[in-house]
Simulated scan of single mutants.
Amino acid sequence: MNPSDPMQALYDSPPVAQLRADLALALRAAAHHGLAEGVCNHFSVELPDGSNRFLLNPRGLLWREVQADDIVLIDVEGRKLAGRHAVEPTAMFIHAAIHRIVGKACVMHTHMPYATALTLTSDRALDTTLSQNAMRFHGRTAVDANYNGLALGPPEGERIARAMGSAEVVFLGNHGVVVCGDRIDYAYDDLYYLERACTLQVLAQSTGRPLQPVAADIAERVAAETLGERLQSELFFEALRRTL
């Protein structure tokens, strides 16, 4: 490490160090909640200085072992600026495109099992009029039904970003999900409850009994009520900080 390197100085600055710690905590929490898959998938958060630089988890580490010093700083073109690890190519292409095109501060991409299971169905996504957990996502989801292989270049990352549009959750057909948010704690809370909602839907469907959705206006109201009071998201993340 070169202490005179401006990118290293930025990486070590207190605001960025806190973001690194929070991103690492979100990754460990996802592993704790069964949302990880090997050493694949990625979480990122943009620096709040408008510099088009963001933090990303490194290549080759299990999420449960990631600490703040393992997080890597890269730019919107996917170039590593600081950090001791390499980054995985598909992470750079997907996350750089979503940060640049969609303008989301925090991006979480997983292959978590129940949400991914729904991407394999003809509906491709969660029914946001079923469980209360699902209703918080009413009007907030998009579907990219056209699986196009691994994201090994900028065009595929850009295609995914455009499919997402203004949504905060995109179900990637035959692939997984992306959840975005303005803050790490809000995005992680959504990621956790998205998988809970998808789990309930898959379990309900597995009974073979008819499902009973609510009216769309009720789902819309529940979504507004959930997003209108985010203290619960903050408290959940702080509880994870204490216990993980």
Rank of each mutant, 00 (worst) to 15 (best):
V45N: 09
R53Q: 07
P48D: 06
L35H: 09
G38S: 12
A29F: 05
F43P: 02
D49V: 11
H42Q: 13
A31C: 03
A29V: 14
F43G: 04
V39S: 11
A29N: 04
F54G: 01
L56E: 10
L27C: 08
E37A: 06
E46R: 14
S51R: 01
V39L: 06
P48T: 11
R59D: 10
V45E: 07
H33P: 03
R28T: 11
F43N: 05
S44V: 07
F43M: 13
H42D: 13
N41S: 15
G50M: 05
F54M: 05
L55H: 02
A36Q: 12
V39C: 09
A31S: 12
P58I: 13
P48A: 08
H32V: 10
A31D: 05
S44I: 15
D49K: 12
N52H: 14
N57V: 01
H32M: 14
N57A: 13
F54T: 05
R28P: 03
R53L: 01
D49L: 09
P58M: 03
H33I: 11
L35R: 04
D49P: 05
A29R: 01
A31Q: 08
V39N: 10
E46F: 01
N52L: 00
A36M: 12
L55W: 14
L27I: 07
P48N: 08
A36L: 10
R59S: 11
L56A: 04
L47Y: 00
H33C: 11
H33T: 12
E46D: 06
G38P: 03
G34T: 10
F43K: 01
H33F: 11
L56R: 03
P48K: 15
G50A: 14
V39Y: 06
L55F: 06
N52P: 04
D49R: 09
H32D: 10
R53V: 00
N52Q: 14
G34L: 12
L35I: 07
S51W: 10
F54W: 15
A29K: 02
L55A: 10
G38E: 14
S44L: 15
D49S: 04
L47S: 07
P58S: 06
L27F: 01
H32I: 05
A30C: 01
A30R: 02
L56T: 13
R28L: 06
H42Y: 08
H32G: 02
H42E: 09
L56F: 13
A30K: 00
E37L: 03
P58L: 08
S51M: 10
L56M: 14
P58C: 05
F43R: 04
A36Y: 11
G38D: 11
D49A: 03
G38N: 09
P48F: 11
V45H: 07
L27Y: 03
L47M: 13
R53F: 01
P58A: 10
